[in-house]
Simulated scan of single mutants.
Amino acid sequence: MMIPARLVLAVQDSRYVEPLLNYVHESSYGSALQVTAFTRVESFLHYMDSGETPNLVVGDADMLESWLSRGKASVPWLLLSEGPSALSLMEGCDSTPKYQPLPQLLDIMVTRCRRSGGTLEKLNSGSTPVIGIVSSLGGSGKSTIAMNMAKQLGVLGLRVFYLNLESVNSSALFPSGSVGMEGSFSRLLYDVKASQESASETELSIAHYIIRHHGLKCDSFEPSFNVKEISEMTVDDTSLLLTSLISCHHYDAIVVDTEGDSGERLQAVLEQAGLLIWVLLDDLISMHKSGVWLDQLELKSPALFGSVRKRSRFIVNRYTGQLVNGLPRKDMSIDGVLPYIPSWKQLHREDLLLSSPIYQREVLKLCQQLLEGSGIMPVHAGGGK
């Protein structure tokens, strides 16, 4: 498997950045480039000061001049030119037209990255982070959060896998665009069982079960409609599936969508996730159930509870501006909120759940806040939308 080159895109116009990122993810360039995008000068300069070393910086004149004016650049750079500028007239300036066919532009970027040895750099020095989205009750908006988070991380330029472990897969409402993969998750579960029963302990191969979910802008498995099969997944089955996704070293993040009563599947996620995002609602039932659930985990498995508590972040979904109900435990605190979207109350088109500008903006903020704060993985974005 080719290891993607790390490219920084610094362009102030978000209308230029987003279509380019979408094209990268939906094309073969997604396996060659890992793109981190910025639309604000301050965020771009902060990233370049952070010690991260990309293989190539590509940007417009204003962004590049702000960076280069601080001293000699140690990273190769490429100017997206819109005509004569002080930077384009500088000796040794490497430039290409900002507006040209995307395949042609990306070919130029890949070529420049190869010159700097980009394809030889390992993308992930550690284990791929697993982000578990959990809730103690149904109807909290957990799946909406998980899918929007996977999509927004993908828009940032990260390679994301969305794993749905619900008995009834919510993502089935959003067609993936894949063809001929019906029933593939059932075959994958058969392989999972067979791999564990094999005396030779054959390594589980998942590559041919992975699909590109165009609606979510990330990879996934084709949804299964066999509730019984999924309900019978054990801790070992789920752990093997997660381990196989991690060990392929193809993803920057794995977002796992669970359900409150998923039993052994949830147990595996609680054990393996590097970050657990608990979804709360500001009502008595949600707070009560969340408190009881954590109380029971602490009583039955104190060691696991202690580990889970360290990796947990609590967010309130459908927040209206003021928290009315108190938290059920003294060791809980609110780490973030996501807004109430009134138009979703009478939703008649499922795709609107993934296209609310307000909700997407707040999910993106939450991703930056929680993931940077956790130390699991850095998330950098311009935030200029």
Results as ranks from 00 to 15, higher is better:
residue 314 F to E: 03
residue 355 S to I: 12
residue 68 L to R: 06
residue 224 S to Q: 09
residue 16 Y to W: 14
residue 303 A to E: 11
residue 284 L to S: 12
residue 226 N to Q: 15
residue 35 V to S: 09
residue 364 L to C: 08
residue 311 R to A: 11
residue 214 H to S: 14
residue 173 L to G: 11
residue 30 G to K: 10
residue 305 F to L: 05
residue 65 E to V: 10
residue 93 C to W: 12
residue 253 A to W: 07
residue 325 N to A: 06
residue 374 S to N: 11
residue 228 K to T: 15
residue 33 L to Y: 10
residue 213 H to S: 13
residue 218 C to W: 05
residue 282 D to V: 09
residue 210 I to Q: 03
residue 15 R to Q: 13
residue 382 G to A: 06
residue 60 D to P: 00
residue 148 N to I: 04
residue 27 S to T: 15
residue 253 A to C: 14
residue 134 V to H: 01
residue 121 E to V: 12
residue 278 W to A: 13
residue 281 L to Y: 04
residue 77 W to G: 09
residue 96 T to W: 05
residue 25 H to L: 09
residue 305 F to H: 15
residue 384 G to P: 00
residue 40 R to D: 07
residue 166 E to Q: 15
residue 177 G to V: 10
residue 302 P to I: 03
residue 209 Y to I: 05
residue 285 I to T: 14
residue 270 L to T: 08
residue 121 E to Y: 03
residue 274 G to M: 10
residue 32 A to T: 06
residue 76 P to E: 09
residue 3 I to L: 07
residue 203 E to H: 04
residue 357 P to N: 08
residue 151 K to Q: 15
residue 230 I to W: 08
residue 333 S to E: 07
residue 272 Q to Y: 05
residue 232 E to C: 06
residue 369 Q to V: 10
residue 337 V to A: 09
residue 310 K to H: 12
residue 61 A to F: 00
residue 124 N to D: 11
residue 218 C to D: 11
residue 266 L to R: 00
residue 369 Q to N: 13
residue 303 A to R: 05
residue 278 W to H: 08
residue 150 A to R: 01
residue 226 N to E: 15
residue 124 N to Y: 07
residue 50 S to Y: 06
residue 101 P to I: 07
residue 61 A to N: 00
residue 64 L to G: 01
residue 221 F to A: 11
residue 146 A to V: 04
residue 265 R to C: 00
residue 324 V to D: 09
residue 257 D to R: 02
residue 302 P to A: 00
residue 216 L to T: 06
residue 1 M to L: 07
residue 78 L to Y: 03
residue 79 L to W: 00
residue 89 L to S: 13
residue 218 C to G: 08
residue 146 A to P: 01
residue 77 W to T: 07
residue 22 N to W: 15
residue 341 I to S: 03
residue 265 R to V: 01
residue 83 G to A: 02
residue 227 V to R: 05
